[in-house]
Amino acid sequence: MELLQVEHLTKNFGGLTAVSDVSLKVDDNELIALIGPNGAGKTTIFNLLTGVSVPTSGTVKLKVNDNLESLNGKPVHTIADLGMARTFQNIRLFNNLTVLDNVMVGMTSKTKENMLSEVFRTPSFYQTEDSMYEAAMKLLKLFKMEDSADQLASNLAYGEQRRLEIARALATKPKLLFLDEPAAGMNPNETADLTNTIKMIQEEFKIAIVLIEHDMSLVMGLAKRIYVLEYGKLIAEGTPSEIQNNEEVIRAYLGGDDNDLA
């Protein structure tokens, strides 16, 4: 069954149409990629799907309790609670918190403690804290970051900050994870580590992933299906091999040179 269903999504900013009549779908545990040149509307689509922006028209539906439920008009925190999480082009961490605390912050929306237990520090409060700590450390261990748990996020290397942002998103227990250019600014070794990390996420968590990325070697090595945007419009959809040989994609995305799609 479809996990995410997007139909005729459109977003206008004044006289500019940033996204025009885009329809796409994501199935359970599927990894798809959204590619296109700069300014094609990829991040705008992420913002529309996750509630950061409101569509001008069209519908976004997510599977909730085996039924597709409309997300239109729902606030960001509600959409996150329903099982969608994301990272951003520009890393957004709590730089003055430790690595561990960054992950634990992502878990707070799933806790059931009431205000009285938090104010009076009841036994259930400490049980919850212990449970969150253990879960956060387990997550950091999966990302090979447990030794950095007590470091400030601001002191991490760039690639580690990227991994931490993904770990924090996973701490919300999503069923659909959006990764917005996770390899941006990475060197080849960091990109290779990221590729392995994304593979690990799918194997370990059995969740769907939607990936925006300009690194075509990463996209072609991970995605099962690819959607291609140009000027806010969807111009192609298919498997990596189909996209590599699509003449319209080569023209629009690479100006007639297909070397970067290899």
Rank of each mutant, 00 (worst) to 15 (best):
M137G: 03
P55D: 11
P174T: 12
S124N: 08
F143K: 06
A184Y: 05
F88I: 08
T172I: 13
A184P: 09
A169M: 05
T44M: 01
A85N: 08
N47L: 13
F94S: 04
I166G: 07
Q202N: 10
L177I: 03
I45R: 02
Q5E: 11
E242S: 12
N259Y: 13
L176K: 09
V119K: 07
A149P: 01
K61M: 06
D193L: 14
T98S: 01
M200K: 08
S217K: 15
P188W: 08
P123L: 01
A136Q: 02
I91F: 08
P182R: 06
K25H: 14
M132V: 02
F13V: 05
E134R: 10
I45K: 04
M145W: 06
L176W: 09
N95W: 07
S117E: 13
D130S: 11
K61E: 13
I198V: 07
R92W: 07
F143V: 12
M216D: 10
V54S: 12
E203D: 13
D150N: 11
E7W: 07
I235N: 03
R86A: 12
M137T: 14
F178Q: 05
F88G: 06
N38H: 07
N67I: 12
G106S: 01
M220C: 02
F125N: 05
F178T: 02
T10I: 04
L170G: 02
A80F: 14
E129Y: 09
T239E: 08
E247R: 10
S131I: 13
L34W: 11
L177Y: 07
N72C: 12
I209H: 05
D27V: 10
F94W: 05
A33D: 01
G185P: 09
T43S: 15
F46E: 03
T98P: 04
S148E: 11
N47D: 12
S23M: 00
V210F: 04
R251V: 08
V54P: 08
A135T: 15
D21A: 03
Q151I: 00
Y133Q: 09
D147T: 08
M84G: 14
D258M: 13
L156K: 00
T122D: 01
R86S: 07
A80I: 14
L176I: 14
K206C: 11
A169E: 10
K175V: 12
M137K: 11
V26Y: 01
A208R: 02
Y231T: 15
A167W: 03
A192R: 14
F120L: 15
I250A: 01
F143T: 07
H214Y: 02
M104L: 14
K175A: 11
D130F: 00
M115Q: 10
K25I: 08
E2C: 04
K138Q: 10
L261G: 02
L48R: 06
I45D: 04
D147Q: 14
A184K: 03
E160D: 09
N38K: 00
E248V: 13
I226M: 04
G232L: 14
K175L: 09
A136P: 01
E7A: 15
D81G: 13
M1D: 10
I166Q: 00
G255C: 03
N245H: 10
S53E: 15
R121N: 06
S154L: 00
M104E: 03
A252S: 11
H77M: 15
S154Q: 07
H8Q: 10
A153Q: 01
L4Q: 02
E230K: 13
L152Y: 02
A183W: 05
L82C: 09
